[in-house]
Simulated scan of single mutants.
Amino acid sequence: MIEATEKQLGLLWHTLGLCPERSDRRSISRNHFLTSSGYDDSNNLDVLVSAGLMTCGKAPAFCSQDEVVYRATDEGKQFALGKLPPAPPPLKRTRFDEYLDECECYDGFAHFLGINMPLYQQRGEWQDREYRMVRSPRGSVYRQFRRHYSFTQWSPYETREVTGEWAPTMREAKASYKEALRRRLAEERAEKKRYAA
């Protein structure tokens, strides 16, 4: 019966493109291992050659001529596959994994999750520019999912759920929006308490 050390088995798996820790790399995807003679890997691979699990040959012309290519034999392939431990359970899929499967259909992760993202608006000329952050209600024609900085497409007549104050910088506009959002959430909580009583 053929036996191999853990190091030798790891080299055989690597030669064949196998990875016991990953469920997606449990089939043979290649068959070569390039190394120079005299190294620890080479010595371990020579043991596998003497056991009939691998062969060694000349390196391709584009490689250094002192290197050697090791390849697994059919017996070596069967041995490597037979020594693989049971496949690990598949990783739990997250919402972000689901988004990556369908990301072409959405303008971003927030759109996929259904989050109503705020947008910046601006007014004024180059030296007198002011900014504010607003959030339109769901279903509004002014609601846009992508958080872009194309400020010119907004209407003074649009309905808004939350509106920050105009400010000279985007940072101040964001702070004003956060304060307006905090007040709105506090009002909603107070209204729910009033209905519950």
Rank of each mutant, 00 (worst) to 15 (best):
D74P: 10
P86T: 10
R123M: 07
K77Y: 00
Q65T: 14
R30L: 10
P60E: 07
L48F: 11
V141M: 07
A4L: 14
F62D: 09
R183V: 14
E188R: 11
E75T: 11
R143C: 09
L84Y: 03
W126H: 09
E21A: 13
T169H: 01
T152Y: 04
E104D: 14
R189W: 07
Q121F: 08
N44W: 08
S64L: 07
E104R: 13
R132E: 04
E172K: 09
I2P: 11
E179P: 00
Y99L: 08
M54D: 08
L113I: 00
M54P: 02
F151G: 07
F79W: 08
L9S: 13
S136C: 15
R143H: 14
R146G: 08
Y149R: 07
P90T: 12
L113S: 01
W154A: 02
S64N: 13
S140G: 06
P88T: 01
M54R: 06
Q127N: 07
S176V: 02
T169P: 03
T94G: 06
E158G: 12
C63V: 04
R129E: 03
A196S: 15
G52I: 13
M133V: 15
S42D: 15
Y106E: 06
E158Q: 15
T159A: 11
D46V: 00
A110Q: 13
G38E: 10
T73M: 11
K192T: 02
L11D: 12
G164I: 13
G38Q: 05
N31T: 05
V141S: 05
S23F: 03
F109C: 08
R95K: 14
N116A: 06
P86E: 15
S27Q: 13
R25S: 13
L119C: 09
N116H: 05
E75N: 11
G57A: 11
S29I: 11
T163W: 00
D97I: 10
T169A: 02
P60L: 14
G124L: 04
P85C: 06
L100W: 02
R25E: 15
G10H: 08
S29C: 04
M133G: 02
F62M: 10
V47H: 03
K193Q: 11
H148Y: 05
D46E: 14
F151W: 09
P168I: 07
G10T: 12
R26K: 03
W166I: 01
L18G: 06
S140N: 03
T94F: 02
L113K: 14
W154C: 02
